[in-house]
């Protein structure tokens, strides 16, 4: 999977609630029907954290667990909203071109 697609999926599931890496992949499986490969998932998590779009949630009692549970940041929400709006515009244009009225 393309790394940008993996990053979008991770942001989408984290927009709902903070999750740790394994739970992120389980949520993605619920959304798309397939899990991301470990390289795609943890590469996306590292990249998103480096860009300041997600951060450790800091809710768990255990220090290690606290570091692994991630939540979306304000910048992450903005980025996700902009990306989803652009995808929606592309989707609507594509559906119109196929003669299908967008819902």
């Amino acid at each position: 999977m393309h790394s940008a697609d993996a990053q979008m999926l991770v942001l989408t599931v984290l927009a709902d609630r903070p999750l740790h890496g394994y739970a992120v992949n389980t949520a993605i499986e619920g959304l798309t029907g397939r899990r991301l490969g470990p390289g795609s998932l943890y590469g996306a998590l590292s990249r998103l954290e480096a860009r300041g779009l997600i951060e450790p949630a800091g809710q768990e009692a255990d220090a290690k667990e606290r570091h692994r549970t991630m939540r979306i940041t304000g910048t992450g929400r903005e980025t996700l909203r902009a990306e989803l709006e652009q995808m929606a515009r592309v989707s609507q244009a594509g559906l119109r071109a196929l003669g299908i009225e967008p819902a």
Binding site: H20, G21, Y22, G37, Y42, L45, S46, H67
Partner: peptide, 13 residues
Amino acid sequence: RWGTEISREVAEA
């Protein structure tokens, strides 16, 4: 950061 979870994912998949 992610070693335990990467191992788990690789072992399961």
